[in-house]
């Protein structure tokens, strides 16, 4: 176990280094001059050259990279030239909203996906199972922004039940916060349940064929107990994997929902920095999101190994 963690950790270092290099290259090799953007109308050749010198943009690329990397290692991801805010502060201010959204999406997905998976696994091939399978397949083809707009149309514009774009911070009012997060959370949850349902269903169908389930039945345990305790428990591994695999897509989904529902989260921060050409925030933000993503995947891998000594990779 320790050896496995060590090996995975050792692999993590080059991957994260490569992630920093790629982030840096995207920001610096592609066309566009930060100095010209920063100076705007004031951009004369002399001003641009002076600012290049000040920002270190006149140095060779590898020196710029090492300089930047040195800062990153010391927690200095740069400072926005637009707001004067450091990247870390900007992200930290936005992170709670995004985390709340992701947790709501995951919980909602589990709340819908798990019961449906159990009901389908009990009678595979039944009309109910086929209907749910069809709905799940269809849901996987719905682009997130389309679902968001549909929910806004129905629940905000027609039924006037929930607000569409009035974010309330958690510190102001719990109920108000939950109301303002309901539609964005539901958008992501509705995209999340089909994968959870599909994987868990096929996992449970095979678990229900195991000998120990027959044994439990023979002992006269109630079907409900067998389903929830004997069959669902081993499948929790599968849940962990699916959630891990889904996170990348979910982060993308968060960018879109935050944009549509005007939530002040990390995704919207990245989008704003793109629209406002705030490349320092964009570069630091992309790097932080990517590192977070790598670490979450690492944790999911480890959790998986902890939960199942056989480490059944390549199955889910």
């Amino acid at each position: 176990m320790l050896g496995l963690i060590g090996r995975r950790l050792a692999y993590l270092v080059p991957v994260i280094l490569a992630v920093t290099a790629l982030t840096f290259l995207i920001a610096n090799l592609l066309p566009g001059d930060l100095a010209i953007v920063m100076l705007g109308d004031q951009a004369t050749p002399e001003n641009v050259a002076a600012l290049h010198k000040q920002l270190g943009l006149d140095l060779p690329l590898w020196q710029q990279y090492l300089h930047w990397l040195w800062g990153v290692l010391h927690g200095d991801f740069g400072t926005s030239h637009r707001t004067g805010q450091t990247v870390l502060n900007a992200i930290a201010g936005r992170l709670p909203v995004t985390l709340e959204l992701l947790i709501m999406a995951e919980l909602g997905g589990i709340l819908i996906g798990v019961p449906l998976a159990i009901l389908c696994a009990v009678r595979p091939g039944s009309a109910f199972d086929r209907t749910v399978a069809g709905i799940a397949f269809g849901s996987l083809s719905v682009p997130p922004f389309m679902l968001a707009i549909l929910l806004i149309f129905v629940f905000a514009l027609r039924l006037h039940l929930l607000p569409a774009t009035a974010y309330v911070p958690l510190s102001d009012s719990l109920l108000g916060n939950l109301r303002s997060m309901a539609l964005p959370g539901a958008t992501l949850a509705l995209l999340e349940w089909p994968t959870i349902m599909r994987v868990l269903r096929s996992d449970m169908i095979s678990t229900l064929q195991e000998d120990y389930i027959a044994m439990a039945r023979a002992k006269g345990l109630s079907p409900r107990r067998i389903l929830l305790v004997h069959a669902l428990k081993p499948s929790s591994l599968t849940l962990v994997t699916v959630i891990g695999l889904n996170i990348g897509r979910l982060i993308g989904g968060a960018v879109i929902t935050e944009s549509i529902f005007a939530l002040p989260g990390v995704g919207r921060l990245l989008l704003e920095s793109i629209y406002l050409r705030d490349f320092i925030i964009l570069q630091g933000g992309v790097l932080l999101v990517a590192i977070g993503f790598v670490l979450v995947n690492f944790l999911v891998d480890m959790l998986y190994a902890v939960l199942d000594p056989r480490i059944r990779h390549g199955r889910a």
Binding site: I16, L30, R249, I251, I256, L270, A290
Partner: peptide, 24 residues
């Protein structure tokens, strides 16, 4: 495989947005 690991280390949509933002 190492190279694909690095590309897969980014949430795809975020990477796409960033590259398009720089490329135009």
């Amino acid at each position: 495989i190492g190279t694909t690991d690095v590309l897969l280390a980014f949430p795809p949509l975020v990477l796409a947005l960033a590259i398009v933002a720089y490329l135009g």
